[in-house]
């Protein structure tokens, strides 16, 4: 009888071990007692560039051409790029800048300092490189988004900001024929 009970106990006991569930390897962000700061994720060594992050293209990665803010985009702005920009804008920019760019997003309504409207004179006349530079390095109360948005996506956002600016200063004649018909019907 005692042997049988011992056998039963042995059958159940393996389930109590979690060694295979929690292996010694570190998972992302896992705490570690190996490093003094308790992090398994290590900060990048100063003066180094992570694999795949080297960009020698100043226009694409810094928004500048010969040190000056770029007045052009580093790649062709297609409908796909603008669609991507629209999506990224909604995620990262709209909370403060508002969905149309007037600088009246939800976070601003909750007390963050209001950003300048994209439809202001100054920003309408700023080159694309300026917007890229602000996303990359921050401006005023705005933190930089360099580590959250890839350079290509930043440019995509800039293209969408340009579209927003156009949308708020457009004439009826600028609308596509179909959209124009709808607008005229609504207007009458």
């Amino acid at each position: 009888m005692r042997a049988f009970l011992l056998f039963l106990l042995l059958c159940v006991a393996p389930a109590c071990r979690q060694d295979m569930h929690d292996q010694p390897k570190v998972e992302p962000f896992e705490a570690s007692d190996f490093f003094a700061d308790g992090r398994s994720a290590r900060p990048q060594v100063e003066g180094t560039i992570a694999r795949g992050e080297l960009s020698l293209d100043e226009h694409l990665a810094a928004g500048r051409v010969d040190g000056e803010l770029a007045t052009t985009f580093p790649f062709e702005v297609t409908a796909e790029v603008m669609e991507r920009g629209r999506g990224r804008y909604a995620i990262f920019c709209a909370p403060c800048h508002g969905s149309v760019g007037h600088g009246d997003g939800m976070i601003v309504q909750r007390g963050l300092r209001a950003p300048t409207s994209f439809h202001s004179e100054r920003l309408r006349e700023s080159p694309p490189g300026y917007f890229f530079d602000v996303i990359t390095n921050g401006f005023g109360a705005m933190f930089d988004y360099a580590d959250r948005i890839t350079p290509r996506d930043r440019w995509a956002i800039v293209s969408f900001v340009r579209a927003l600016q156009l949308s708020q200063n457009a004439e009826l004649a600028d609308a596509a024929p179909e959209a124009r018909r709808v607008l005229e019907e609504e207007g009458s």
């Binding site: 963050l112 109360a141 933190f143």
Partner: peptide, 10 residues
Amino acid sequence: KTCMTCHSQL
């Protein structure tokens, strides 16, 4: 940093 983007002010 993501938290502080807003909570440095709010």
